[in-house]
Amino acid sequence: MKTWRRINWPIMPPLIAVACLLVFPLMIVLSLSTRQVAPGQVGGIVGGYQLTLDNYLTFFHPAYLRYVTDTLWLSLIATTIAVLAAYPVAYWLAVAPSSWRRRLTIVALIVVLYASAVVKVYGVSIALGPMGLRGSIAEFWGVGMNNRLVTSTVVVVGLINFLTPIATLMMVAPFQQISPSLSAAAQSLGANRLTAHLTVIIPLCRAGISQVFMLVYAASVSAFVIPLVLGRGQVAFLSNLVYARFSEVADFPGGAALSILLLLITLCVTLGLGWIVGNPAAKWRGYRS
């Protein structure tokens, strides 16, 4: 009886709805991923149900490691830069007194957020294309314009362009939860502004920043249009391979298997990163004790 009372009934309907919308389709995808492929048929599914893991084994070819590393590594670089770039702006938005500059910045961020991702991607594509700064990027890296390193850089810039407004707006909330008087108190006790910020503000909002980092990283890993347009066929994310299978070659089992693998990889990496960025100091203390 006590257990029933503990259940928060008002949240149950949305919880059930979310579970259905998430779990049910996932089950379908999982089931699809174990079906045998019949090339030339829509969906590539053999009639009847014959369980197979071949669709998964296909992706254990060493060549696919490159797609995994592109997805995870370039996303990690882009997320890190986006969060670092967002940090000072978000902090200023959270603590600055209301002014036209602050309002204008918020409006600008929201407008950028609402702008179509495709428009932004093509903007980057033109700006960093052969007629734009691609040559300078190539020169910076000391390679030719068609080098993969240049394309990877362009993809990272595209991701940063997409992620920074999201990271900034999301990061305002953690800063707003911290009373400005805490920093003032530290300064009144002799700490300078930088020390007060590093020793008071950052530790207090570390959990919030970590959450922002993880959410932005998840958005980056699942990016589709950015690597498709900016990757020029040299750089592709796993989501691009999934799309090709579902929409272009009608290999539904292959697409489903890759989707499940992408989910598992992302889950592992997210948990790992969450563990690393979550509370390293506490963990370090834990190890020492």
């Binding site: 590539g44 066929g233 391979l241 290999d251």
Partner: peptide
């Protein structure tokens, strides 16, 4: 019939060379 195989072959053999 062959397009899915060709797609995989591209991903494995050609894309890494680009």
């Amino acid at each position: 019939r062959e397009l899915p195989n060709w797609t995989q072959r591209w991903e494995r053999e050609i894309a890494p060379l680009l």
